[in-house]
Amino acid sequence: MAAGLPGFGLGGLFFILTALLAPVGELWRTARGRSSVAAWRLVGRQFCQAVAMLAAVYLLLRVVHRGPESALPLTPLALTGTLLLAVLLGAKLLGLAERARLARAAARRRDEVGRRPVPVGERSY
């Protein structure tokens, strides 16, 4: 099955960015001896696709915006980028909140175990 809606809104931008960043991660893996030629082939393929997609966006904006001024209409891109950042940040904050909740719950459990009277037969000296 597929999830969500295919195309190049938030998801598209996110995957283009992650494809552009992938060589950095692969360099790190290479330095630690955990990479391979096949991995670099994949990273290179996705990186080239991402660059080609960015070129397509650039050409599209050039075609759509053929006004006298030379600047590209960056508002839609900035809007999508801001939205993407907000979603990622929101998810990250929720993740941190969940981690804190789990830590509190674990601490409470430890406290309860510490306060529980130990049966005579289980005491150790």
């Binding site: 969500g4 809104g9 996110f14 990622l88 929101g90 990250k92 929720l94 993740g95 909140a97 969940e98």
Partner: peptide, 16 residues
Amino acid sequence: LGLGFLRSVVAIAFWD
């Protein structure tokens, strides 16, 4: 929420 990359992908898929 505890699975970094997947958390991001699912959040983006949902809002998208």
